[in-house]
Amino acid sequence: MDTCIEKIRAIGADLLAKGEVEIIIGFSDGSIPMAARPVAVSSRDDMEKLVFNSTCGLNLANYVSKNSLSGKGAKIAVVAKGCDARNLVTHMVENQISRDQIYIIGVPCTGMVDKRKIASMFEDEITKFAEEGDTLIIESALKKLTVKKTDVLRHNCQVCTHPNPPVFDVMAAEPVAEQTLDQPFADVDNIAAMDPEARWAYFQELTQNCIRCYACRNACPLCYCPTCFVDESSPQWVGKGQNQTDVTTFHFLRAFHCAGRCTDCGACVEACPMGINVREFTRKLNKDALELFGWEAGLDLEKRPPLDVYSPDDPNDFIK
């Protein structure tokens, strides 16, 4: 993967030199290993800051909004994995930005690593992370491990069927092979197989450590409302503390606001400081969107999302 960073930098330098875009949004190294963070580059001297590796798990579409453009004609370039590009498409479909304001530098993605899983292999702090092809070399003061990347992939990357950006202006490398899965939602099916009480208990336990920091919401490109329902005080839709009923309400509604829009990018899970897999909620919605409406978000600029249009074929046997 590190092979395409030179290409990304070259494309970026060229775009800035020609004045085609005013900013390039990409990833740069964080202050500690495995914490790649978003960066906005506007000068060719800063191009070296751009990196791309298996720790770029956030979604850069989140950093693009109507407000990030300086004027009408302005254009921003975004370094986009499959899911980032799909969320950019979703932004466009939802009229947040227009296609001609964004220049998509597409990156074929081989998946991002589960940082918690890697951290759990060490007793102390990780001091170094390097990768060569699909081998990861991770070091701490106590030990050095060589791990196969495929063994530590995030769950959403394991089940990803769109690693290549569906829409792009330029690609930084050749597209990677895309998988098709016999059982794309095995995780959801496992929960569905439990009885209602067990499912309730499962989701209560899942969210019991939630500290309501809203990092999951903030990391999600779909959550761009100027005032989120959780922050409103008149009316106050949901209590703000850690009461389990309020926590459950928050998670149910946050997820439902993503219905038919979620790309399963995993940024929400990546951001959660408590290690809560909040995708468990959106996965069910994604499964329904696919099974009831044949819909996967962010693949097509022309099609309207299922909850946005009426069709005579819409399933309606739940209405009595």
Binding site: W200, A201, A259, D288
Partner: peptide, 20 residues
């Protein structure tokens, strides 16, 4: 989809009704 998610989270389906 809202009803399905509630049901998935363990709420009894018979408590959720949609009608026009």
């Amino acid at each position: 989809m809202m009803g399905n998610l509630l049901e998935h989270m363990g709420v009894d389906r018979d408590r959720i009704h949609f009608s026009w």
